[in-house]
Design a protein around this nucleic acid. Structure first.
Lengths: 127, 127
DNA sequence: GAAAGTAGTTTCCAAAGGGAAACTAATAGC
DNA sequence: GCTATTAGTTTCCCTTTGGAAACTACTTTC
C-alpha cells in the first residue's frame, strides 16, 4: 500500500538541497542584507555613515548588526582607517560578488511580479 | 562640498530595484516557503497530509499558513476534490515554476558556501 | 458509537526581528 | 568647555515568527 510512509523525500540529494537552501537563507535572511549589499556593489567602498544615509530607512543598530553578520560570513570587508576621527570602510568581497546572480534573479522576479499584477494574466496549471 | 547629501541612491532605477527586491522577499520570506515549493516541484500534485509528512519538521499550522500565502500569490493552486473524506490537492502553478531559477541559484550558492567552509580559501578584496 | 483519517483552525506561548532614541568614546573646530 | 562628527552600542519596547498541542467537522470503518 505504501500509504503512511513518513518520508519519500529522504534521498540524499534532497537533503543536500534542503541544507543548502537553509544555509543560504540563514545568511541572507532579514530585511536589510540585500539592500546593503546592493548599495555597496553600486557604491564601492563606503563608510558607515554613508551607508546609513544611503540605505533608506535603516537604523544604526540594524546597519551595525547586519554589517557584522555580513563580515562574519565574508561577504563584506571592514577596514579601519587611522584618520583623525576614525573612519571605517566597508566593501563587498570577491566572495560577496558571487551573490550578484541571486540578487539579480530576485530583483528580476520581483519586477516581473509587479508587472503581472497589472496585466493580471492568471497562470493556472491545473486543468 | 556635497558631503551631507542624504541620498545619492535616489535614482529611479535604484528605487525600482529596491522595490522589486522588497516585493520578492516579502513573498518568499519565512522558514518554509522554499521547502514547500521545492517539495511540490518534485512531487507534483500533493495533498495536505502528504506535504505534512514530506516537509521535514513543519507543523500543520505553518503548512496551512504558508500554503495560503503561496496560493494568494498565485504560486501554488489549491483544488478540493469531492472524494468522500474530502481531499485537497496542491500544485505549483506555471507562475510558481518561474521561481525555479531563484531556488536553484540559492541552492547552488548554499552548496558552494559549504564547500568553501572546508577549503577555507579567504576571498578578501581589500589590499 | 468509538477510532481513525481527511483538512485544517485555534490557543497559548517563547524567541527572534526590528525600530526609536539615548548613550559612549574619540577627536576636531569654535 | 560646548558642539559636531566619526562609529557604533545599549536600552526599551512592540510586532512577527514559529512551534506544540488541542480542537473542529465530516466520513468511513469497525
Amino acid at each position: 500500500m505504501a500509504k503512511k510512509e513518513p518520508k519519500i523525500n529522504n534521498k540524499e540529494t534532497c537533503k543536500a538541497h534542503f541544507n543548502a537552501i537553509n544555509d543560504a537563507m540563514e545568511i541572507l535572511s532579514g530585511k536589510w542584507k540585500f539592500h546593503i549589499l546592493g548599495t555597496l556593489m553600486e557604491g564601492g567602498k563606503m563608510r558607515f555613515m554613508d551607508l546609513l544615509r544611503e540605505v533608506d530607512g535603516i537604523a544604526a543598530k540594524m546597519l551595525s548588526k547586519e554589517l557584522q553578520s555580513l563580515e562574519i560570513n565574508h561577504l563584506v570587508s571592514r577596514t579601519v582607517l587611522n584618520t583623525k576621527p576614525i573612519t571605517v570602510e566597508y566593501e563587498v568581497t570577491k566572495y560577496g560578488e558571487t551573490l550578484k546572480p541571486i540578487i539579480d534573479e530576485i530583483a528580476k522576479w520581483g519586477a516581473d511580479y509587479r508587472k503581472n499584477l497589472y496585466t493580471e494574466s492568471d497562470t493556472k496549471s491545473s486543468s
